[in-house]
Amino acid sequence: MLRVDTPNFPYFLLVGILPWNFFAQSLMMSTSSIVDNGGLIRKVWLPIEVFPIATVFFNLAQYLLAMAVLFPMASFFFRVPLSRSALAFFVVLPLHVIFTLGLGFFFAAATVFYRDVKHFTEIFLMLLFWLTPIIYDVRVLPESLRATVYANPLSFFITSYQDIFYRQIVPDPFHLLVLFSLSGLSLAVGYIVFSSCKVRFAEEV
């Protein structure tokens, strides 16, 4: 089995699991955001985009609050001060939000037409959790398994957070470029899918 020799493991875990929770919760809530507000969508004209966006930002607020609690605790219990690399957070976070929002758009639209997408999302997220280096450090994995982990786009985001707060280094430019393309791609695809079928939402919900 994996030998756990990650020092300060609780801190490592928290740094990874908080952004994961933000991502997973946003996605789960986005899937039902259109369907649950069907009554409103059928009766009032409003920009339907607000529902997934509001969901993601609601979860973002929770994530930021959790982070605000984490850092004083971290410096008190684990003696990990924030380093200057933390500034990279302000680059990674917006990209992470955009990435989540894109997927949120996609799943929100899909759920209108296929109601069980919600349940598939739950299962899919469970699988994704283990494919994301949250409770293990990607560096302890054998080379052969790393490719599998990095096939999961979310791994790039989580390892960036770990770089920033745990390893206290700025993620390398290549890594940031990947984040940038992933979030752009996610938002583009998600938004195009969402807006191409939004005219039918009022009839389908």
Binding site: F113, Y114, R115, D116, V117, F120, E203
Partner: peptide, 14 residues
């Protein structure tokens, strides 16, 4: 409007 008989609105039934 499309009336969908035997409506499949889940991935499962599709």
């Amino acid at each position: 409007f499309t009336i969908r008989h035997n409506r499949t609105n889940s991935l499962k039934s599709s």
